[in-house]
Design a protein around this nucleic acid. Structure first.
Lengths: 151, 151
DNA sequence: GCTTGCACGTTTGTGTACAAACGGTATCGT
DNA sequence: ACGATACCGTTTGTACACAAACGTGCAAGC
């Protein structure tokens, strides 16, 4: 007799059946992994994507409070603290008390941090390009538009 | 003589200008964050996306060696070890030596793990749907096709 | 036999990521 | 003035993610 599977030979291949490889979450994780690999290979410095987010955001919008910077770079308060601690330990950022608000810890780039940001920015752009390299121009545009709807 | 900076007063506000918010990597991280949040809210059990990947892959393709499972779920050998350790500690998976190859550690679902996988699969599908909810059907298809080119 | 090489799993160390709880500071309404 | 509320930063604990180094088992070649 027939096994219990595939009793029905419907037109569709199968029912709902959860297939890991077809789930967005799983694919997203892999795409992020690939991007991270490209990043650490091409960035030219011993710096992580997250650290670069903080650094480049500071370069882009100037000094701001630690938590604010966390919001701008999509990091948890605990996460941004660790990141800034490490960047500060490496002399790329520095912190000071906000004179106008005793709660805030102002974060700014040091000279070395500024120089690094300038030096590395072209690599970062190249990393974006390489990540998207498998796509045509039209596809890249499409992807960015779609991803933007999902953040 | 003049300082080297800002000698030119170009029309554009800045030069090549690296804008963090427009980089795929940054957006990918945020999309993944949003998905993770949906996941932990909707999965209905105290389980992570990564653990679910291992669990559902075991349910899908049956027992296999630890490293092999890691490959199937896009995890590092060190990562998959931790994941299996935790799943085993919770009685969802179990391990045994492969009798045919002294190196391999065979991983399989326990009964509890199987039951959990079955119980949770519908939620996992719902999570996929909710993650993609901001998109139209056509857009979802498009996105999946594009992401697939980038893994 | 034996060596070379590769696969398997483990351990250590660093770096996100987030929840939860804590104490301190500003602000606003009353 | 004051108390509720919200925001700021810190700490602790858990869980990925990956590099690097280690020891062991297997298989292919001479």
């Amino acid at each position: 007799m027939a096994r219990s599977v595939a009793v029905k030979k419907s037109v569709k291949p199968a029912k709902s059946s959860y297939v890991l490889d077809e789930q967005v979450g799983f694919i997203l994780r892999q795409v992020w992994q690939r991007h991270s690999a490209i990043f650490s290979r091409e960035i030219g410095t011993n710096i992580t994507p997250t650290q670069w987010a903080a650094l480049s955001k500071l370069a882009e919008s100037g000094p701001c409070s630690q938590n604010q910077l966390g919001r701008l770079t999509a990091m948890d308060v605990a996460t941004i603290k660790g990141v800034i601690d490490r960047l500060t330990a490496r002399g790329l950022t520095e912190t000071s008390q906000d004179p106008e608000d005793g709660r805030r810890l102002l974060v700014s780039l040091t000279r070395a941090g500024q120089q690094l940001a300038e030096k590395v920015a072209p690599n970062a752009l190249a990393i974006t390009r390489e990540t998207l390299a498998p796509l045509e121009a039209k596809e890249r545009e499409m992807l960015m538009a779609l991803l933007n709807k999902l953040r």
